[in-house]
């Protein structure tokens, strides 16, 4: 790791500073907050994305009138440029003139400062991110369900297993490899999320929605003074986290194949 001030960047004479930059990053007051926010943001996001995606996949798989069309409509969020969907969410959640508060207000709920209160800002960006992630989970899990032979389910229902039991004892276990890869990819992608949070809150108010990725982005581009060293150090921490989970996934896969 070199001391990459912009002057050094242009002149190409960065001074080698070893792990000082990492020490600086870990010692920063922002670090614990960012780490915690990253953990909450990532875990809550992928958990709900996955659950919603799975429920919807099962629901659409059961086949009914218009199911194909409706399922395709679910992909629309993905077609929207991120700046548009994130701005739209920020718009809907706006404290004074947002539609969400307007609806809640009709039920007598007082104004909630979704994006501008440290208590709810993280929740708000998570909700938007879950919304963005549902199509991805739905597509993979649906195609996973398609690959589960219909006879298995039929056999189970002949045995008199109810739909609920049938799902947990047959479908879900068979879906495990697909689930694993979905969750892993979800994790990798969610760790990297910058745009949604940045457009909605720029990591604020204060640092209440600052994740590691946002922090890295802010150091590099969010101020008038690009500083790439801490940005790169934080970025590397992120890659490290993703790698750990990647290894974990392979380990599990290996054990499963062995059994």
């Amino acid at each position: 790791m070199h001391d990459y001030t912009i002057r050094a960047f242009v002149q190409g004479n960065a001074e080698f500073v070893g792990f000082d930059k990492y020490a600086e990053v870990f010692g920063s007051t922002t670090f614990p907050t960012a780490l915690l926010n990253t953990a909450v943001f990532t875990l809550v996001s992928i958990l709900f994305q996955y659950a919603a995606g799975l429920a919807l996949a099962v629901f659409f798989r059961s086949g009914f009138r218009l199911s194909g069309v409706l399922r395709a409509m679910f992909l629309v969020p993905w077609l929207l440029p991120l700046i548009v969907s994130a701005s739209t969410w920020a718009w809907m959640l706006s404290s004074e003139n947002g539609i969400v508060n307007s609806v809640l207000g009709a039920f007598g709920v007082p104004q909630i400062n979704w994006l501008t209160s440290p208590d709810t800002a993280l929740l708000s960006v998570i909700v938007a991110n879950i919304w963005l992630g549902i199509p991805f989970n739905l597509v993979i899990l649906y195609s996973g369900l398609q690959n589960i032979p219909g006879e298995l389910a039929e056999a189970a229902s002949l045995d008199g297993a109810g739909a609920w039991k049938q799902f947990w004892s047959i479908t879900f276990p068979l879906l495990r490899p697909v689930s694993a890869i979905t969750l892993l990819l979800g994790l990798i992608y969610t760790l990297k999320v910058v745009d949604v949070i940045w457009v909605m809150t720029t990591g604020g108010p204060g640092n209440s929605t600052t994740t590691l990725a946002i922090w890295s982005y802010r150091e590099a581009f969010g101020t008038g003074q690009p500083d790439f060293s801490p940005a790169a150090a934080v970025g590397n921490v992120l890659i490290l986290i993703a790698l750990v989970f990647g290894f974990l996934h392979l380990q599990l896969q290996h054990r499963q194949e062995g059994s």
């Binding site: 790791m1 991120l82 745009d195 457009v199 581009f221």
Partner: peptide, 26 residues
């Protein structure tokens, strides 16, 4: 004025290339 929100947000752009050079850094 200096930065704006939307564009600044996504003006990752070529610009980001700079960061990359930083990331590949050393």
């Amino acid at each position: 004025q200096h930065t704006r929100r939307g564009p600044a947000a996504l003006a990752t752009t070529v610009a980001l290339a700079t960061a990359t050079a930083g990331l590949l850094g050393a």
